[in-house]
Design a protein around this nucleic acid. Structure first.
Ligand code: MN
Ligand code: MN
Ligand code: ZN
Ligand code: ZN
Lengths: 127, 127
DNA sequence: AATAATAATAGGAATCATTATTATTTATTG
DNA sequence: CAATAAATAATAATGATTCCTATTATTATT
């Protein structure tokens, strides 16, 4: 795979955020620095970066998000603000348990925990 | 909400399978018994049955599947045959841990474990 | 049973995220 | 610098799902 300015920029953008961005968000950022870049190029390169192991993909309902953090971890999704936040738990227990109980060879655990994040705490309203 | 023959059929089809069907699969089954039913009707009613709590939805990558089983449980997805199978594990531990450690109010845990199911066991090939 | 009120449907258009196509541009190599 | 082929930009196509609207079916009322 040979070098391209657009791929370098795309990777830099994903590396520079914790927001688990979509292809379209990356595209909006990228065109600020490179106005002629096309959305197809962003999709193509994000996919390639994912198969190369430079970034990882997250399925957020019906859209795909990208995450520079390759460590096995899961996500909390706030149903109010839609934010995804990282959470590290029990990954190894889950893998072990599934292997032993279900005879299923685990590659990857995808967990999204849906709820309400602490930005929307009810405590504040108790004035 | 008033009765409709098509909604009754749609629910019956979802209730009658463990395959975690998509809207399109339900549509294909439904039209065998009711050839004039439309795909939009299937989508509309599956969504309604889900909000009514008659069925639950599963995000399988980019497509939505439906599950009659309302018990909290997770799914193993085989990367070879694409099948989804039910798995029951640790749900309460996960909820508790997230509440305590992250101050995040949990509504629902969505977990998909990706790997290879035992239909593709390598033991069989060791002849 | 006929009538009225209106919820639900069929069929098709529209939308949204993503992928495919292709002519043109660009990185790489001798 | 020229040749080669990989990557891009622009745009068309796709697939899943939702939306629109004229027509039909269900339910309540005479
Ligand atoms: Mn993450
Ligand atoms: Mn299930
Ligand atoms: Zn929030
Ligand atoms: Zn399998």
């Amino acid at each position: 795979m040979r070098y391209s300015r657009q791929r370098e920029l795309i990777l830099e953008i994903v590396m520079g955020t914790d927001s688990h961005p979509t292809a379209d968000w990356v595209f909006q950022q990228a065109r600020k620095q490179m106005p002629e870049i096309s959305l197809g190029t962003v999709y193509r390169n994000l996919k390639r970066l994912a198969t190369n192991g430079n970034v990882r993909t997250i399925n957020d309902g019906t859209v795909v998000r990208y995450d520079w953090d390759q460590e096995p971890h899961d996500h909390l999704k706030c149903k109010i603000c839609g934010d995804l936040m990282d959470v590290h738990l029990l990954e190894e227990d889950i893998r072990k348990s599934v292997r032993e109980k279900y005879n299923f060879e685990v590659d990857d655990v995808e967990m999204t925990i849906i709820g309400t994040c602490n930005k929307h705490n009810t405590i504040m309203e108790e004035k």
